[in-house]
């Protein structure tokens, strides 16, 4: 037995001539959150659909919760929960009926189904709206109900496909807290998102997809260290000192970025100790510094660098 809850090796999928996924591998250990990052069309949703057996894969292999998605689809489906990109709840039913429906489909008795539904409605702060038709719900409420629906069967692995797209900041924060609670209880989560902040906050490890291929994988810190660029931001006391400061920095081997006439400039650096060299160069040029800061790379930098590289 392995403690990998998702283990995909060399998975490929094409739609006609379009290669949606091209040799993607992904491993998610039990009880962790993996963030799947990528722009629209990178193949995130396709990968989720293959792993949840919604679509058959063309090549490669994958197991989810220890079961092969191709030969053991039913076992996989018994152990997963899927929250799609769009809240896939029945808008013509009440919130309560939506959850009862799923519980009944999973084999619960009437009584068990009603109990589980009430429990989840309480947990997701929807108890007051239990008997209202879902088409009267707000976007945030629909998403919460959708997530609740995917948890009815106590799944081992939960797939969240862009769960917070289109949500306001408060709703987003609420959803994040729910996901964190899930993981504390031992659930494994695969999360696709376009929001780097979301991946940074929730994901133990991150896989970046671009054009159907994995272009980077690791923890947020690793990705930032490997791919991101530290920068030193400087604001000079006077704009007039800029030409000389720039010349001195270039002599020291830096490539500062500066808009003419401005007091501020940005200097990409490789290591933290480059800070001293920057200060020395500025001192040589007799440039008085009003403000100096070392910026750690953000996931945004990583993402932009990677997707830019992939497109080039």
């Amino acid at each position: 037995m392995t403690d990998l809850m998702i283990d995909a090796a060399d998975v490929s999928k094409a739609f006609g001539d379009v290669k949606a996924l091209d040799g993607v591998s992904l491993q998610v250990p039990k009880g962790t959150v993996t963030g799947l990052l990528g722009h629209n069309g990178a193949g995130k949703t396709t990968l989720v659909n293959l792993l949840t057996t919604v679509l058959p894969l063309d090549a490669g292999g994958a197991t989810v919760a220890g079961h092969d998605v191709t030969t053991d689809g039913h076992e996989v489906r018994s152990r997963i929960g899927l929250t799609g990109q769009f809240a896939s709840v029945d808008e013509q039913l009440t919130g309560l009926h939506n959850l009862v429906l799923i519980a009944r489909l999973l084999g619960a008795s009437r009584r068990q189904a009603a109990d589980r539904a009430s429990e989840l409605l309480e947990l997701f702060d929807l108890a007051a709206a239990a008997d209202r038709k879902v088409d009267t719900y707000s976007g945030g409420m629909k998403r919460r109900l959708d997530l609740a629906a995917s948890l009815v069967g106590h799944p081992d692995v939960v797939f969240l496909d862009e769960p917070t797209t289109g949500l306001d900041p408060t709703s987003r924060l609420g959803l994040w807290e729910i996901v964190e609670k899930l993981v504390d209880d031992g659930t494994t989560v695969l999360l696709t998102t376009q929001y780097l902040e979301e991946a940074d906050r929730l994901a133990d490890s991150i896989t970046v997809l671009s054009n159907g291929q994995v272009v980077a994988a690791g923890t947020a810190a690793e990705l930032k260290a490997d791919i991101g660029q530290r920068t030193v931001a400087i604001t000079l006391a006077e704009a007039a000192a800029a030409p000389e400061a720039l010349a001195a920095l270039r002599r020291a081997g830096f490539s500062p970025i500066h808009d003419e006439g401005r007091r501020a400039m940005t200097i990409p650096v490789d290591a933290a100790n480059a800070l001293a060299a920057v200060v020395r160069a500025l001192d040589d040029a007799n440039a008085e510094v009003a403000e100096l800061a070392l910026h750690e790379p953000t996931l945004d930098d990583v993402y932009l660098t990677l997707t830019h590289q992939a497109a080039a």
């Binding site: 659909n49 949840t52 057996t53 919604v54 039913h74 489906r77 018994s78 997963i80 929960g81 899927l82 799609g84 990109q85 769009f86 809240a87 896939s88 709840v89 029945d90 808008e91 799923i102 489909l105 999973l106 629906a149 995917s150 069967g153």
Partner: peptide, 16 residues
């Protein structure tokens, strides 16, 4: 309606 609203995908991800 189920297909366009994504309900069908949810049903397909259940052990039915």
């Amino acid at each position: 309606t189920d297909l366009t609203k994504g309900v069908f995908d949810r049903l397909r991800s259940l052990p039915l």
